[in-house]
Write a protein that binds this DNA or RNA. Structure first.
Lengths: 192, 192
DNA sequence: ATTTTTCGTTGACCAAAGTCAATGGTTTTT
DNA sequence: AAAAACCATTGACTTTGGTCAACGAAAAAT
């Protein structure tokens, strides 16, 4: 357990064995089955989940019942509703497992205490969130300035693993498209 | 000088006078005139700029020459190309001043050294970027799940100051719309 | 093994947004 | 004060993507 987590961690910030043990004492492990919720709309998001194995997604539901996928999280990624996690307000999104998964969980309390006791942990968090911010900003910019053909091809190139493991209508939802439109985009790309 | 900066800072993280002085010694001030560049495509982004006064924007240019505004930064906000700042790679966006502005600048080297010497500084950075991440995520979600009417009204409500100080075609660009479309949206909203 | 459900694709049609062009009002520059 | 540049709006037309409905294939449930 924790292999993927600490591998990811030490890629960003080096750790002594003592620090590793300290951090470990604040973590917990959670297994979750496909289709099971990690968070439901209205709950306060109390943890950040790091994915050791499997894949999760977060999404919002419109009144009409339509899903809008915010994020996919395969192995080596984290998932949470940071807005709710940081503010303590109820979340307006759902998180569930797309595959049977294993997670490393850090609660808000644990994270705050670790931040004080262990500068390396806070540094890791900063790098984690900075990277997430940068990639979100690229996503917004692509939405505003690239064709959906380009955006779909970028998605395939950037997340080939996700593309293979997830049904296409979820990718459409992530891109803000109807499944029919994504299907037509694929045909156009294939046939040239 | 630095009033707005430290006001913003201490809202998020408390500071002793000693810490304040230490941090001050790593900052510098920059004045920039309307239309002047802070960063151009191809440059490496070497600083984070905090806006004391005035307003800046970051944007990308498509081959066709069309601008796509990534972000506005009025007083109390920071602006940078974090991707380039963190990686040291050349930026693919421009930053310029929409109004005559005064900035507090932190270079990458200063930021790294401060992070080591002053935990409060690193904590501030974490909060700053976390907040930016949360608001970006809300933006992506709004793009994928709300009508442009709703998005425009949200923009007006969330950033009334920006809406008043910036020409409408820039807001259109920020929202990924043509100026004509935004104009029609406004008419529809007004006349209902 | 058979029945359901889920998925991706396709067609026909409709609605939304982009493009192009023109206009008139501001603001800036000179 | 006049000229130039910029800006928002509007109309006509085109393109793009959404919606609805149907179909067949594959996967999951029974």
């Amino acid at each position: 357990m924790y292999e993927v987590y600490f591998h990811h961690f030490t890629q960003k910030v080096p750790l002594t064995e003592a620090e590793k043990d300290l951090i470990k004492s604040y973590l917990s492990v959670k297994k979750i089955r496909k289709r099971q919720y990690l968070l439901q709309e209205g709950d306060v998001c109390k943890s950040i989940a790091f994915v050791e194995k499997g894949m999760l997604r977060s999404y919002t539901l419109k009144d009409s019942g339509t899903e809008h996928i915010v994020q996919f999280a395969p192995e080596g990624w984290f998932i949470s509703d940071l807005g709710s996690f940081l503010s303590g307000e109820p979340s307006n999104c759902h998180i569930d497992a797309i595959e049977d998964s294993e997670l490393v969980m850090v609660t808000r309390a644990a994270s705050d205490e670790l931040s004080l006791k262990c500068p390396a942990y806070e540094r890791y968090l900063l790098k984690l969130i900075s990277a997430a911010y940068v990639s979100l900003q690229q996503r917004v910019n692509a939405i505003n300035s690239h064709s959906i053909e380009d955006r779909y091809q970028d998605f395939l190139q950037k997340y080939p693993d996700i593309a293979l493991r997830v049904p296409q209508h979820m990718i459409a939802s992530y891109m803000g498209l109807s499944p029919e439109t994504l299907s037509r985009v694929r045909r156009r790309i294939a046939g040239n």
